[in-house]
Amino acid sequence: MTTYRESVAEGIAREMRRDDTVVCLGEDIGAAGGVFKTTVGLFDEFGPERVWDTPISEQAIVGAAMGAAMTGMRPVAEIMFSDFLACCWDYLANEIPKVRYMTGGQVTVPLVVRTANGGGLGFGAQHSQSVENWALTVPGLKIAAPSTPADVVGLMATAIRSDDPVVFFEHKGLFASKGAPAPDGHVVPFGQAALLREGTDVTIVGLASTVPLALTAADRLAEQGVQADVVDLRTLLPLDVSSVLRSVERTSRLVVVEENPYQGGWGATVVSVVAEEGFALLDAPMRRVAGANVPLPFADALEDQVIPTVDKVVDTVKALVDY
């Protein structure tokens, strides 16, 4: 068994070993190993010419990664907390996703922006957000958000080898979680959701932290006679709605569990596609268990009120099955 946290460094290291153009940059990622210890060992193995500590300059970090990506490198930039993406949002919204298109395909931007995302750790309103939906609002970005250690490695391989820009969300609440290590050469393609549990009564779709939450909820529901399909999207873009539709075809019910806020959350895109293309498959309204439309509070008890929990998923599914 290995941890999600160790798998981040392992996934990056595997790609750095096979491709000299892969370089890392970010705050405290060198000798310090990252504030979340997700880059431990990289500086020792690859040295200061491949692992670069930066000042607290999010625009320079991501902008320099972009310039390097346009000129033959494959940079992996770390933005410490995903909340800080707002400090360099111009690059994620206006520059990186658009430059290939607006130049008529003259340039490519093969870079990865990694960032620690999500709540549940009591970091308060400016260090706890799930902002994967921010990235989903911008055509031109690929988005990965793994839920297991093996997927961290496999999706990281695809992200770094991708000739397209990738925003890679590592969930803070999962760093200590354990799972089977990735086998050698493990690569998980983008746009292929994982069906983690099969049931006939309801489809529960999750991403990153909401996947273990959905699995726990499914266990509890099974004790009460409700069998759930659990689908881990793994990437938001490409979005594997085909897998969701195939599951709903068998279960006729859909619950989406997303940590980002209900307003503008990615679940809205999933259910809108199912509404447009799979309405006839449904026997009940679709439901979204999402972050509340409030800033993230600090106190544990308050935070539980506003982010998805196992109880909320179980209650939502039960209400749906009884519909």
Partner: peptide
């Protein structure tokens, strides 16, 4: 490598291209 219409946005890119030139 492009003309950019968000004021100042391309300066970090030039820094990155120079970084890349050094790395390569």
């Amino acid at each position: 490598l492009g003309s950019y219409a968000i004021v100042g946005a391309h300066l970090p890119m030039a820094v990155g291209a120079a970084w890349s030139a050094r790395l390569r």
